[in-house]
Amino acid sequence: MNFFKEINLGKLLILILFIIALGIPYVLRANQYQVLLATTVLLYGVMATSWNIVGGLAGQLDFAAFAYLGIGAYVSGTLFIRFNITPWFGMILGGLVASGFALLIGIPLFRFGIKEVWYALTTSALVEILKVAFNMWEKVGGPVERCLPYFSGSWQNMRFVSYAPFYYIMLAMLVMALIVNQKITNSKLGYYLKAIGEDETATEVLGVDNRASKLKALFYYSFLIGMTGGIYSCMYGYIHPSFFNGPESTKVAILGIVGGRGITYGPLLAALLLVGAQEFLRASLGGEFSGLYLLIYAVIMVIVVLFKPRGIATIFQDIYRKFVVREVKNKDVA
């Protein structure tokens, strides 16, 4: 964790942001709808940050974020509905099932010599396929919403009368995702993944088991998102095949790419800016323009990719570096 030791300025910034994040539900408390929107922004922050592990570091573009979210939601929700198992435990099982499923996709596609594009293609259709499958699977899914049992204000069962607790749970998830991300980045796995994202043939002859590394990345990613799925189902109070949302999955990947592949806070930054703006507009203008957002996301991604291929976080990095370099120079003078 060099990052935290070296730069006190960065540490301070993180602390300030965290305190602001803690205060938001209090500011918005009069309007539950706005708290939900703020939680949604955090949700995308969690998803994009987790996405960074596989899509950013390892360079395996994944367009199936909501597949793992949906599976997590279904596992946790079904356990709660059928067997009255608390979602706190259900979400962990949900994460495990989601990652098991993800590995099933990853094992054939992460072999040496299979082009990365096939993984992207496979995941790009996965979410819609699962939506169809869960619509057809009457025992667990089906087209009718399955509601979670309601106990008012029950911590044990993750059921609350307001959205604020969900906000804090999601914030905790975000912190966890960031820490996992940062830990991986500074470990052997992180270096391996970064190198794999650059050139797989070169890593292979340096003794890197590409497939195992990529599968590990996929595991962390899908586990984090599967867990989030458990929270997601409680937040909405039901499970439904529409949780498998293809366009929104693409949006998660877009956030990761726009934010900056491989930079821990990049995808979060993009989520805060883009999803934040989107939810703010939705709150003030209503849902009429919902079709338009995705279009804007696509345009922003293409522009960013063509002109700032490493994402908007690099802009901030450059500014920051300039700033820090000046600091150091000043010290030398003194």
């Binding site: 270096y191 043939t201 292979e204 002859v205 340096l206 003794g207």
Partner: peptide, 30 residues
Amino acid sequence: PHKICKLGMSRTFQITRSFGEMSVEDAIRV
């Protein structure tokens, strides 16, 4: 290939295959 490398063989490439975004230090670290 990675097992062959573990056994004790490595190589370089005619057309360089560098880890573009990584620093020299980090590339060696891999």
